[in-house]
C-alpha cells in the first residue's frame, strides 16, 4: 500500500469513529428515555399510558423496519433541515442516529423490563416517588443489560456506517468500496476488513468487560 493509501485509511478510520461515536451518544441520550417511556407507560407500569405507549411503540417499529440504506435517502429532507447539508459526515450522523435510537431503545427496554417487580414494589413501600424509582431502581438495576445492549448497538452502527459513503461521508466502508472493490485493490480491501474486525473486537471486548465488572458486585 502506498503512503497515501495508508493516510487515506487512517482518515477513514477516524471518520468512522467520529460518525459512530456522535451517533451513539445521540442514540443513548434519546434511546434511554424512550426505553423508560416504553416500559413505564405500558398497562401495569408505574405511569400507565396505554394509548401513547402503543403510538410510540408503532413509530419505533416503523423506523426499525426500514433498511438503513433506504433511511439514509428517505431522511434527506430532514437531514437538510437539521444540518443544513445533505453530504458529508454530519449528513450521515443524522440517519445513523435515527436508525440506532429505536434499535438501542428496544434493547434497553428488554433490560428494564427484566428488573424484578418486587424491587419496584419495595421502593414504593419505602416512600419512593416515580423519579426515585427510575433513578435508583430501574436504571441502576438494568445497567449491566443496557451496557451489553449498547455494545451490540455500537457494533451494528459500525456496520451501518459503511453505507455512509453513499452521502459522501467517507469512512472505512467507503474506502473499501471505492478502492478495494471498484479499483480491484485486494490489499486495501483486506486492510479495511482487518481494521473493521479489530474495531468490532475491541468494542465487544471493552463492553463485555464493563458488563462483567458491573455484574461481579
Amino acid at each position: 500500500m502506498s503512503p497515501q493509501m495508508i493516510d487515506r485509511l487512517g482518515q477513514a478510520c477516524l471518520d468512522t469513529l467520529f460518525m459512530v461515536g456522535v451517533s451513539a451518544g445521540i442514540a443513548v441520550l434519546a434511546g434511554i428515555p424512550l426505553a423508560l417511556f416504553l416500559v413505564t407507560s405500558e398497562p401495569g407500569g408505574i405511569l400507565p399510558a396505554p394509548k401513547a405507549n402503543r403510538v410510540v411503540g408503532t413509530i419505533v417499529n416503523g423506523f426499525r423496519a426500514v433498511p438503513f440504506i433506504v433511511l439514509l435517502v428517505a431522511l434527506i429532507p430532514f437531514t437538510r433541515l437539521v444540518t443544513g447539508t445533505t453530504i458529508g459526515i454530519w449528513a450521515a450522523i443524522v440517519p445513523l442516529s435515527v436508525s440506532a435510537t429505536p434499535f438501542f431503545a428496544r434493547i434497553a427496554e428488554v433490560s428494564l423490563r427484566e428488573v424484578d417487580g418486587g424491587l419496584i414494589e419495595a421502593a414504593q413501600s419505602i416512600g419512593c416517588r416515580r423519579r426515585h424509582i427510575l433513578l435508583h431502581v430501574l436504571l441502576p438495576e438494568a445497567l449491566p443489560g443496557i451496557l451489553g445492549g449498547f455494545t451490540i448497538t455500537l457494533v451494528a452502527m459500525i456496520g451501518a456506517s459503511a453505507m455512509a459513503g453513499a452521502v459522501g461521508a467517507g469512512g472505512l466502508g467507503d474506502v473499501a468500496i471505492r478502492y478495494g472493490y471498484q479499483r480491484f485493490d485486494t490489499t486495501v480491501m483486506a486492510a479495511v476488513i482487518a481494521v473493521l474486525v479489530a474495531l468490532v473486537c475491541l468494542v465487544q471486548f471493552a463492553g463485555d468487560r464493563a458488563v462483567r465488572r458491573l455484574r461481579a458486585r
Binding site: 414494589e121 419495595a122 419505602i126 416512600g127 445497567l143
Partner: peptide, 26 residues
Amino acid sequence: VGMIFQHFNLLSAKTVHGNVALPLKA
C-alpha cells in the same frame, strides 16, 4: 409503614448502605 419481603427485594446495584439509605434519600 415499613415493609419486609420474602425475597428481601434488595437493590443489587447498591451496597448495604445504599439500600438502607434509599428511604431517607427519597
